[in-house]
């Protein structure tokens, strides 16, 4: 059992100073995914920034254990870029 903290970046940094007691690192990693999923379901606009969404799971000592990274790519814009390069 340990206390884990889940910080996010989605254009701005949000520090979790409360944290959550969980049985082990593996469960904490899964919780990071669940939290990221919850944030995405709640507000899809969260990915509008170039950096996408980053959830960082940190243990009580401040050690980074796990990072969830979600980004989206606008295929239309990228295809247009490729097309321009070919021409």
């Amino acid at each position: 059992m340990g206390r884990y903290f889940f910080h996010t970046r989605d254009g701005h940094r949000e520090i979790d100073e409360v944290g959550l007691d969980l049985p082990d690192d593996r469960t904490a990693g899964l919780e990071a995914v669940r939290y990221g999923g919850s944030l995405l379901a709640d507000d899809p606009h969260i990915l509008r920034h170039d950096q996408g969404l980053r959830v960082e799971c940190v243990d009580d000592a401040g050690k980074l254990l796990y990072t969830l990274l979600v980004t989206s790519v606008d295929a239309k814009e990228n295809l247009a870029t490729f097309a321009t390069e070919k021409d």
Binding site: T8, E14, D16, V18, G19, L20, E31, R34, L39
Partner: peptide
């Protein structure tokens, strides 16, 4: 508490904390 709010709202406790802020 934050954890009870999470159990009411169907959110994770960390998401509740973020939303409270």
């Amino acid at each position: 508490t934050q954890e009870q709010l999470a159990d009411v709202l169907g959110l994770t406790p960390v998401h509740v904390n973020r939303t409270l802020k």
